[in-house]
């Protein structure tokens, strides 16, 4: 077949964005997005990085090379079908060894974000404490969720202010965050609860926790999907910041600009 200008996109083939910071310093920042078998929101995470002005790099779970990326996103989906337990198989992927090692060196270590299934992978890999069990109502739930940013000092939340509210889509079946009370107290005490559900707890998560970080703040995991609130016209119908048009919510974009700005310094 002769090469054509546009082809049916494969995973991670994100077309160049005209918005964002195409020529600025942010575009120098390379953010890797890992695809596992069964990853679903990997293209969406790459699009979010691009829209935030960074350069998205496709990473393959079976590789051993992080391709010199400056940060890593483990996207949502059902890696390995969530078989055995969500994230339980993916954590053994060759690339996860590299990520775990690179993320474990303090505040200058590799920034890592786990979204939904990615959060589950990070808990299985012990980069973050606790675990996710089935929603207390036992159903898959997709809805626009109001969250409060509790900690605006992590690598992934610097663009928000502590206490700020955001509206971000939530969609999962195993989203109930659980941990023992000592761990929960520790998370609260160290300010590592990064996002908390507001108004209504959608799944029974302990202490309304939607997202947490490690001690250094470079590793963050959350169940809602900020990458689905980054582009006006394709996000939620509302925003916590302003009155927006149909599907105009972009409250999640700050997660991606935060890490880019942090890395540019």
């Amino acid at each position: 077949m002769t090469s054509t200008s546009i082809e049916t996109p494969l995973i991670g083939d994100v077309q160049p964005s005209t918005s964002g910071d195409a020529d600025g310093p942010l575009s120098e920042v390379r953010v890797g997005v890992v695809t596992f078998p069964g990853s679903l929101d990997d293209r969406d995470a790459m699009r979010a990085v691009t829209l935030a002005g960074g350069s998205a790099v496709r990473l393959w779970h079976g590789d051993h090379d992080l391709q010199d990326v400056d940060a890593v996103i483990i996207p949502g989906g059902f890696s390995y079908g969530d078989y055995l337990r969500a994230g339980a198989i993916s954590r053994f992927a060759p690339l996860m060894e590299q990520i775990t090692a690179a993320a474990s060196g303090g505040t200058d270590a590799l920034p890592v974000l786990g979204i939904c299934n990615g959060f589950q992978v990070l808990t299985e890999a012990h980069l973050l404490p606790g675990s996710m069990i089935k929603n207390n109502h036992l159903h898959f739930l997709c809805r626009d969720q109001r969250l409060r940013v509790e900690n605006a000092d992590t690598h992934w939340t610097g663009e928000y202010w502590a206490g700020e509210e955001v509206v971000i889509p939530l969609k999962n079946q195993d989203g109930q965050f659980v941990a023992d009370n000592r761990t929960l107290d520790e998370l609260e005490g160290e300010g590592r609860v990064v996002f908390r559900y507001v108004d209504e707890n959608p799944n029974g998560s302990r202490r309304n926790i939607a997202g947490i970080s490690n001690t250094a703040g470079n590793v963050v995991g959350l169940m809602p999907h900020p990458e689905h609130a980054v582009e006006a016209g394709f996000g939620p119908d509302s925003s916590a910041r302003e009155d927006v048009g149909l599907r105009g919510g972009t409250d999640g974009l700050g997660v991606f600009t935060s890490v880019l700005r942090k890395l540019v310094g």
Binding site: D41, H139, L141, C142, R143
Partner: peptide
């Protein structure tokens, strides 16, 4: 419909 994902693929 809340039991179906309407966001994926963006």
């Amino acid at each position: 419909t809340d039991q179906f994902d309407r966001y994926v693929q963006g």
